[in-house]
Design a binder for these strands. Sequence first.
DNA 1: ACGCAAAACTGAATCGTTTCAATTTCTTAG
DNA 2: CTAAGAAATTGAAACGATTCAGTTTTGCGT
Lengths: 334, 334
Amino acid sequence: MAISVRDVAREAGVSVGTVSNVLNRPQMVAPATVAKVTAVIEQLGFVRNDAARQLRAGRSHSFGLVVLDARNPFFMDITHGAQERALANGYTVLMGASDDKKSSESRLLELFDEQRVAGVLITPVDTDLSRLWKIRESGTPVVLVDRGSGDRSFSSVSVDDVEGGRLAAAHLVDGGRRRIAFVGGPLEIEQVAHRLDGARSVVAGTSDAVLQVYETTSLSVLEGRRVGEKLAALPENKRPDAVFAANDLLALGVLQALVMTGKLAVPEDIALVGYDDIAFTESAVVPISSIRQPAEEIGRTAVDLLLREAEAGADAVREQFVFAPKLVVRASSR
Amino acid sequence: MAISVRDVAREAGVSVGTVSNVLNRPQMVAPATVAKVTAVIEQLGFVRNDAARQLRAGRSHSFGLVVLDARNPFFMDITHGAQERALANGYTVLMGASDDKKSSESRLLELFDEQRVAGVLITPVDTDLSRLWKIRESGTPVVLVDRGSGDRSFSSVSVDDVEGGRLAAAHLVDGGRRRIAFVGGPLEIEQVAHRLDGARSVVAGTSDAVLQVYETTSLSVLEGRRVGEKLAALPENKRPDAVFAANDLLALGVLQALVMTGKLAVPEDIALVGYDDIAFTESAVVPISSIRQPAEEIGRTAVDLLLREAEAGADAVREQFVFAPKLVVRASSR
DNA sequence: ACGCAAAACTGAATCGTTTCAATTTCTTAG
DNA sequence: CTAAGAAATTGAAACGATTCAGTTTTGCGT
């Protein structure tokens, strides 16, 4: 049914080797032959069969990307950056979301393994990286995304989450807030834990501020709303005067809940700072202050590291990229 | 380097055919043999090479999905729905964004062609479907997403955009608005044109309402902001008293601009209705009324149609699914 | 015209899985 | 215990692009 190089070769009166050369190294083929073969390819509507190429090559020219949440704009931006850079280098990106579930993560890695991807970009669900070790041992480079590699055993592109937490908390404390609620979870997610650590360190450095943790089961708008409602129901003397949310979806949810109950004003009664600085924080009921991370840049850099490792082979140097987070102040904490 | 069925066969003391059978039709193999082979697979860490499978099968077990904008939550939701349904049927989804560009669309289709995808799901950039005809002729089923197939020549899953436009305009007119601005574009995008048509028909049915079109170059927050600023600068007698935006990103942008200039109140001075009902409209400065489309459902249904067509082969019946849009009223038009 | 190196081209072997006709082994009725 | 049929297993062929050692053609200096 489908046209193969063999058909093209026959029709053009050359050998399959020559057709392949026209496709892959045209400079090694006489111009006239290139023209003839190209014409036949066009005429017959020949399309390379990538499966056959990959089989022969032993590797695909795709990277696998595992993110935590495909519907979080932050990860979409990372994906976008990665895709752009990969495409520019002749690679394709297969993206999948783990939704915080180890099982989905495994399933995706399994899938990528079957595809013999040229490399894996991943924001791991937890700190257990044994699976990734195995993958790398089998010859597939791995780069950690939005997550540092504690012992530097993996290349990684991340943002200093402890510093981000510090920035957020310091901003709130400097603004006179004393009862700070940290909303985020699950705490197994390293990024969340680090942001909390950063905030804790700032609060600990004051004489009178306190920090209370409201752990969530996921980093979603819905979870944020749930916590927001709980906060709104608190008596004034127990109620926090500031909320630091571990990401913007949570912040958005908290804000929605506070605004809907109508009794509490942001930032007057409760100040609010989110994390990631996704596009939608800017147009929220009350524009939300946030900690900005260079999402697209993270994606691009991660692909760069992957390309470098793929080239260098097994003895590649691991590189750790750590971007600095930036506080963006908006009405929610002014 | 990598372990192949051959290695497994040798180690387990059986033939490659048997290993393959264990993998694909275990019920045809003696239980003891299944156990032995499975154990060896485990022990050796054998992972199927998907390229080889595909090559043999002639088709991959992936679907290709082309959306207009990967960063628009609406399309993310469609993707999510499609992915979910595909995975449940043992398929994988390759997603790519055309960003409204015919060239990117072509590039993606080319890529999918090389992968010999089992089917294509696409929201076409324009009305020229000739490329898709060719793809289908070559044996790959195609389903149009979020876009009807005028002549029913393709299976499609869409939402009645004309009706959606009508709902939005009727709501505004019923609310006493008379000078309605339609913000959206490019008008080549069929969905945008249809929404405009719907709105037009409603306005034409009144004696005194007028509709003015502000065409945008894309359906983004930035473009919305641009138009919003223009609107805000208009003298009161030329200024519309309502805006119908072709999607929520635009609506969000318009809202941002209006709120930022601080002179115009929504909905008092200008009412606003968006389209898609993405999650973020609810938490906007002023919660935005919108036309809801069942995004995930669209994705799921599209995959269903694809599966059905793939099974039926060339003589498959084309099916048109048209969902009804729903008006969701929020503060921006109350 | 001749020799020789460079350029162009050839085609069989290869990648790893699945399939299927052929063969071997197992069951069971008589 | 045997024959026939079922069940289990085998292994070579096929999928289609790429590679590379080997062969043919071209171009050039003398």
